[in-house]
Design a binder for these strands. Structure first.
Lengths: 239, 239
DNA sequence: TTGACCATCTTGTCAGGCAACTTGGTTATA
DNA sequence: TATAACCAAGTTGCCTGACAAGATGGTCAA
């Protein structure tokens, strides 16, 4: 039984207009700092109403592609490109895309673990330890332990004090978590053994962070993530 | 002489409304799959007009936070959180933020270099080699070589065949590049020596990728990026 | 009980208009 | 002539009102 994707509706006019304008900017038809035509002109030249133009421009503004000044006009943002990066993983069914995401997650988390080992305070360490313990108890209860697993990694990422690592990791974790959940549910027989292994790997990471051995922390994280990815791949091959 | 930032204007109504709605969703006031109030209701309850509500909702839709169906209503996206990640580095003046970005860039590029060593085709290798050569010629011409430097790393990231690495790295490079440019310009006396060193480090990376030695590639990339960050830090301390 | 049908609600789009702000030229003054 | 005040046109920000298209729930007839 498969869940139907929400069958992508016809994109709204504002959508296609925003995309066309973004394309025009990307292709350099409007250079950096250049003034865009007025909303009226855009509206008439594209054959849509001004509210549509406003909506499209508002979107580009939101993405940092353009800035507008009341009474003056809308201008393409300075210095090559947006100030906002959009990571769009909406088509989450493609296996290649999932693997790409997991790769990105591995890159982030292994680096984060290394940094965490260098920077962790005593409080960070206690937080991570708490999550490690929570995972242990989840195993004892026979829970899936996915939430505790994610929380453990989140605690590590928090210790880097780098908000970008944190936000990106939170986002990627969210996107991957449902996969992990179903994977663990569908491999119920192997679950206990797997989770004991996971916990062992977590403990190795924890000890490295505790010892502030960044190199060991990175290697332990890489090892753990590679194994985790392999465990996930087994599930994906089966389904 | 400092360039004034465009002195952030009063945020538009749609902006603050979008932020409030996003906050409501993040805090779980509207659960996943739940239906939002109608545009009319939102408009009257927030004291704004419907076009403003439309603009705000359109923004959230753009970010994958909600989906709307004509005739039915707007619904919070399923499965915890957006399908689009926004990396906002608009306040690029804060030094801590710059360092965080550089850290992220280092994490991405060192992992990318490792993957590139594993996956590079002959064509990838020749592309990377071409950029290495271009950098050499830029040094000969006395150019800054920033563009060639970036192109070299881009060629490596391309070889990973991972679009997320590529897009993220392109974006981060763009944001950091202007800094590097000014840094090299302001350290003109050290420039030649620095660039020879850079080129040497690049060659080490290239050789590792050529030999498909992923471990050596990662270490060379890490070494190079750490040195690059240190060179940048020298400039930032001076300014 | 079941099926067709319709009133109602909601979103998508449009038209027109007013207020606030910017800009460039015009005019009056020193 | 040069300068300063001023004004008119253009532009964005926002609003009201309206209609079309699609979805939903209830009603009524078979």
């Amino acid at each position: 039984m498969s869940v139907h994707s929400p069958l992508d509706r016809a994109p709204s006019l504002a959508d296609v207009l925003a995309q066309r304008l973004a394309g025009d900017i990307a292709e350099g038809r409007y250079g950096p700092g250049e003034k865009l035509p007025s909303e009226q002109q855009i509206a008439s030249s594209y054959g849509v109403s001004r509210p549509i133009v406003r909506e499209a421009i508002g979107r580009l503004k939101h993405d940092g592609l353009i800035t507008s000044r009341q009474g003056s006009g809308a201008f393409v943002a300075e210095s090559g490109g947006a100030s906002v990066f959009r990571l769009d993983v909406s088509n989450f069914t493609d296996r290649a895309e999932i693997e790409s995401i997991i790769e990105l997650l591995m890159a982030i988390e292994s680096s984060a673990t290394e940094l965490a080992a260098q920077r962790r305070t005593e409080e960070d360490l206690s937080q991570i330890g708490t999550q490690l313990e929570a995972m242990q108890q989840a195993i004892g209860r026979g829970d899936s332990g996915v939430d505790e697993d994610v929380a453990f990694h989140q605690a590590i990422v928090d210790a880097t004090k780098n908000p970008f690592f944190k936000d990106l990791s939170t986002f990627l974790d969210r996107r991957v978590r449902s996969f992990i959940r179903t994977a663990r549910a569908n491999t119920a027989k192997l679950q206990t053994g797997h989770m004991m292994a996971v916990q062992e790997e977590h403990r190795t990471i924890f000890e490295a962070i505790k010892a502030q051995d960044s190199r060991a922390a990175r290697e332990a994280a890489e090892d753990h993530l590679k194994r985790a990815a392999a465990r996930l791949a087994i599930y994906m091959d089966r389904s």
